[in-house]
Measured scan of single mutants.
Amino acid sequence: GTVHVGDKTYHFPTPDAAKKFAQEIAKKLNLQVTVKNGTWQVH
Results as ranks from 00 to 15, higher is better:
1 G>D: 07
1 G>T: 12
1 G>E: 05
1 G>P: 09
1 G>Q: 10
1 G>H: 14
1 G>L: 11
2 T>F: 08
2 T>S: 08
2 T>H: 06
2 T>N: 05
2 T>P: 02
2 T>A: 08
2 T>D: 06
2 T>M: 09
3 V>C: 04
3 V>R: 01
3 V>Q: 01
3 V>G: 01
3 V>W: 01
3 V>S: 01
4 H>G: 04
4 H>A: 07
4 H>K: 14
4 H>R: 14
4 H>E: 10
4 H>N: 10
5 V>G: 01
5 V>N: 02
5 V>W: 15
5 V>S: 03
5 V>Q: 02
6 G>H: 09
6 G>P: 01
6 G>T: 03
6 G>E: 06
6 G>Y: 13
6 G>M: 12
6 G>A: 06
6 G>C: 08
7 D>W: 13
7 D>Q: 13
7 D>P: 11
7 D>S: 14
7 D>Y: 13
7 D>A: 13
8 K>D: 06
8 K>I: 09
8 K>F: 10
8 K>A: 08
8 K>Y: 09
9 T>N: 04
9 T>C: 07
9 T>W: 12
9 T>G: 03
9 T>P: 04
9 T>I: 14
9 T>F: 11
9 T>E: 07
10 Y>L: 04
10 Y>K: 01
10 Y>D: 00
10 Y>V: 03
10 Y>P: 00
10 Y>F: 11
11 H>N: 08
11 H>T: 10
11 H>F: 12
11 H>A: 06
11 H>E: 06
11 H>P: 03
12 F>C: 06
12 F>G: 00
12 F>I: 01
12 F>D: 00
13 P>T: 12
13 P>N: 11
13 P>K: 13
13 P>C: 14
13 P>W: 06
14 T>H: 07
14 T>R: 04
14 T>S: 10
14 T>W: 04
14 T>Y: 05
15 P>S: 12
15 P>E: 12
15 P>M: 13
15 P>F: 13
15 P>N: 12
15 P>R: 14
15 P>Q: 15
15 P>I: 10
15 P>Y: 14
15 P>A: 14
15 P>V: 11
16 D>M: 12
16 D>K: 09
16 D>N: 10
16 D>H: 11
17 A>C: 07
17 A>E: 13
17 A>K: 08
17 A>Q: 12
17 A>W: 05
17 A>S: 08
17 A>M: 13
18 A>V: 01
18 A>N: 00
18 A>D: 00
18 A>P: 00
19 K>H: 09
19 K>I: 06
19 K>L: 10
19 K>G: 08
19 K>Q: 13
20 K>R: 12
20 K>F: 10
20 K>Y: 09
20 K>Q: 12
20 K>W: 10
20 K>C: 10
21 F>W: 10
21 F>L: 01
21 F>N: 00
21 F>V: 02
21 F>T: 00
21 F>S: 01
21 F>A: 03
22 A>E: 00
22 A>L: 02
22 A>M: 02
23 Q>N: 11
23 Q>I: 15
23 Q>F: 15
23 Q>A: 09
23 Q>L: 15
23 Q>R: 08
23 Q>C: 13
23 Q>S: 08
24 E>M: 15
24 E>C: 14
24 E>F: 15
24 E>G: 10
24 E>H: 13
24 E>N: 11
24 E>Y: 15
25 I>Q: 06
25 I>H: 03
25 I>C: 10
25 I>M: 11
25 I>T: 07
25 I>D: 00
25 I>S: 03
26 A>T: 02
26 A>Y: 02
26 A>K: 02
26 A>S: 06
26 A>M: 04
26 A>P: 00
27 K>Q: 11
27 K>L: 12
27 K>E: 10
27 K>G: 07
27 K>N: 09
27 K>S: 10
27 K>I: 09
27 K>H: 09
28 K>C: 09
28 K>H: 08
28 K>T: 08
28 K>D: 06
29 L>F: 15
29 L>T: 04
29 L>A: 05
29 L>Q: 04
29 L>N: 06
29 L>D: 04
29 L>G: 05
30 N>W: 04
30 N>L: 05
30 N>G: 15
30 N>A: 06
30 N>I: 03
31 L>P: 00
31 L>R: 06
31 L>T: 07
31 L>F: 07
31 L>S: 07
31 L>W: 14
31 L>K: 05
32 Q>T: 14
32 Q>Y: 07
32 Q>K: 12
32 Q>D: 07
32 Q>A: 11
32 Q>R: 12
33 V>I: 12
33 V>A: 10
33 V>C: 08
33 V>Q: 02
33 V>D: 01
33 V>W: 06
33 V>F: 09
33 V>R: 01
34 T>M: 06
34 T>A: 06
35 V>H: 14
35 V>N: 14
35 V>W: 15
35 V>I: 12
36 K>T: 13
36 K>N: 13
36 K>R: 11
36 K>I: 15
36 K>P: 01
36 K>Q: 12
36 K>W: 12
37 N>I: 04
37 N>F: 05
37 N>V: 03
37 N>W: 04
38 G>Q: 06
38 G>S: 06
38 G>V: 04
38 G>C: 06
38 G>A: 06
38 G>H: 10
39 T>G: 08
39 T>H: 15
39 T>Q: 14
39 T>R: 10
39 T>K: 09
39 T>A: 15
40 W>N: 02
40 W>P: 02
40 W>Y: 14
40 W>F: 14
40 W>I: 07
40 W>G: 02
40 W>Q: 02
40 W>R: 01
40 W>H: 04
40 W>S: 02
40 W>E: 02
41 Q>P: 02
41 Q>A: 07
41 Q>G: 05
41 Q>S: 11
41 Q>Y: 15
42 V>D: 02
42 V>K: 02
42 V>E: 02
42 V>W: 03
42 V>R: 01
42 V>P: 03
42 V>M: 04
42 V>Q: 02
42 V>G: 02
43 H>S: 12
43 H>L: 12
43 H>M: 13
43 H>E: 10
43 H>P: 04
43 H>R: 08
43 H>T: 11
43 H>K: 08
